[in-house]
Design a binder for these strands. Structure first.
Length: 480
RNA sequence: GGCGGCAUAGCCAAGUGGUAAGGCAGCGGUCUGCAAAACCGCCAUUCACCAGUUCGACUCUGGUUGCCGCCUCCA
């Protein structure tokens, strides 16, 4: 079964055939580091993290490049505002990005290059573009002439005439065409700058990706990704630059993820409703965030709401509860090596092969959870060899699916313990008191003093403590 | 104005030209001292609306309505 990908360039799902068999070269636009990362960044990064993991699981040799834009107008503006050095600002937010993404269990990309470390290569490409007649210099600025690139607009499905009709771009009279974009920008006094044949300046936004992508992955690559908003103009401009400079198709498959809305509204500066990752993971388990982000198809918009997050949390609890139950009852081990993947893994792969349909994949995961719970209910005492094999197979499938989607990495014990601890902290509850009350209740139950037992449970309920009487003993958890 | 997307049960959400995955919530039951958890059963004769193609469409085509995104920095 081959992987099929929706390619923005063709507007269709296409069978994935890498340029070089068995290898995947993938470039994803990373953040401009002038502020903390928000939940929208999380979606993009998580989606491509899962795509990369899935390719690896299908035995592809993946080279994944995700850049940092660490020189840019916004960074300079913000740094000036704060009265600090723009390099220090960039460094700070790169550090924060890693902190957030580590918390979300995002794997590091193969290469994570920074624009400022590739200035020479950027200048070289700009030189080539000027020499080939695609770029022109005015004062200290260098522009790309969109009219010189015949297929300009092929990614976003626009043409220059249409664009001009509804033009709302800033009018720079020096440009030959309003849509010409800057390759090299002259520096104002005090701004970070590099020496160049066109004077002191810095790279334009788009050119860095052409430079870094070609350096680490080659002049033609398999996959280039990013948020939907990057299609125009950023990715359109990247195509123009790269193809004009190298005379080769730049990217075979373009993948774009949809937005995250907050309570049905787009995150925007005017609404001030940017939801930062560091804030979200204070309230919700990072794995629940991943489960939530992957519960819709990556191209669809997804609405971040408290309700949706609570549902994701319930779902995650359900899976961990099953894993715990399975381990305790049967001694199934999380060791996956040496076991063949079963029907659920197969179903999961089928979903993933269809344009990385994680939403369907999660359905398969819950089917497996359900099946295991049922089997565990049915055989209360002894397990037949057949049942055991079935159990082990489904169990490993679940872990493997979790591994691709980047959750279920904790042991159930740790997961629930951590959850209790956080709940206690949040509600300022004293654990010793809770446990003492539970002991009293256990004694009352032993004495068949149901009235007292129920009274204690009621008391605990008032403190948001929920009990479960299991055969091995009573366990407790903190409610939401 | 141009380009693109979406409309599936109370909510979220997959989906194939052949008759609607999954999750959350709800209801009935099993289990339990009672609960909780888990399990069993129920929960869209119907997929915005109207035409058309077809033996047959939620799935294809055309139109209508509604919502959203991009076109300006943005994941």
């Amino acid at each position: 079964m081959a992987i099929h990908i929706y390619n923005t360039l063709s507007g269709k799902k296409e069978r994935f055939e890498p340029l070089e068999p068995g290898k995947v070269n993938m470039y994803v636009c990373g953040p401009t580091v002038y502020d903390s990362s928000h939940i929208g960044h999380a979606r993009s990064v998580v989606v491509f993290d899962v795509i990369s993991r899935y390719f690896k699981s299908q035995d592809y040799d993946v080279t994944y490049v995700r850049n940092f834009t660490d020189i840019d107008d916004k960074i300079i503006d913000r740094a000036n505002q704060l009265g600090i050095d723009s390099r220090a600002l960039a460094k700070k937010y790169i550090h924060e990005f890693y902190k957030d993404m580590d918390a979300l269990n995002v794997e590091r990309a193969s290469v994570e290059p920074k624009a400022t470390e590739h200035i020479d290569r950027i200048k070289k490409i700009i030189g080539t573009l000027i020499q080939k007649g695609f770029g022109y210099q005015i004062d200290g600025d260098v522009f790309f002439a969109v009219d010189s690139f015949k297929t300009y607009g092929k990614l976003s499905g626009r043409n220059l005439e249409e664009l001009e009709a509804g033009a709302r771009v800033d009018i720079d009279k020096r440009k030959r065409n309003p849509f010409d974009f800057v390759l090299w920008k002259s520096a104002k006094p005090g701004e970070p700058s590099w020496r160049s044949p066109w004077g002191m300046g810095r790279p334009g936004w788009h050119i860095e990706c052409s430079a870094m992508s070609s350096k680490y992955l080659g002049e033609s690559i398999d996959i280039h990704g990013g948020g939907k908003d990057l299609i125009f103009p950023h990715h359109e401009n990247e195509i123009a630059q790269s193809e004009a400079a190298f005379d080769k198709p730049f990217v075979k498959y373009w993948i774009h993820n949809g937005f995250v809305n907050i309570d049905q509204e787009k995150m925007s500066k005017s609404l001030g409703n940017f939801l930062m990752i560091k804030e979200v993971i204070k309230s919700y388990h990072p794995e629940a965030v991943r489960l939530f982000l992957l519960s819709n198809h990556y191209r669809s918009p997804i609405d971040f709401t408290e309700k949706a997050m609570e549902e994701a949390t319930s779902g995650l609890d359900r899976i961990y509860a099953l894993l715990e139950r399975a381990q305790k009852k049967t001694g199934l081990s999380p060791e996956t090596s040496g076991f063949k993947m079963g029907e659920y893994w197969e179903g999961f792969c089928k979903s993933m092969d269809d344009d990385f349909n994680t939403a369907r994949g999660i359905g398969v995961l819950f089917n497996a959870v359900h099946k295991l719970n049922r089997l565990l209910d049915e055989c209360k005492n002894r397990l037949s060899t057949d049942t055991r094999t079935t159990l082990q197979s489904a169990y490993i499938d679940i872990l493997k699916m979790g591994n691709i989607m980047g959750f279920l990495v904790e042991t159930p014990g740790t997961y629930f313990e951590d959850k209790r601890y956080k709940g206690l902290e949040r509600d300022s509850i004293d654990q010793a008191i809770i446990e003492k009350m539970i002991e009293e209740r256990t004694a009352a139950r032993k004495a068949k003093d149901w009235a007292k037992a129920d009274q204690i449970r009621k008391e605990l309920g008032k403190r948001n403590i929920i009990l479960e009487d299991r055969s091995e003993g009573t366990i407790w958890k903190v409610g939401r």
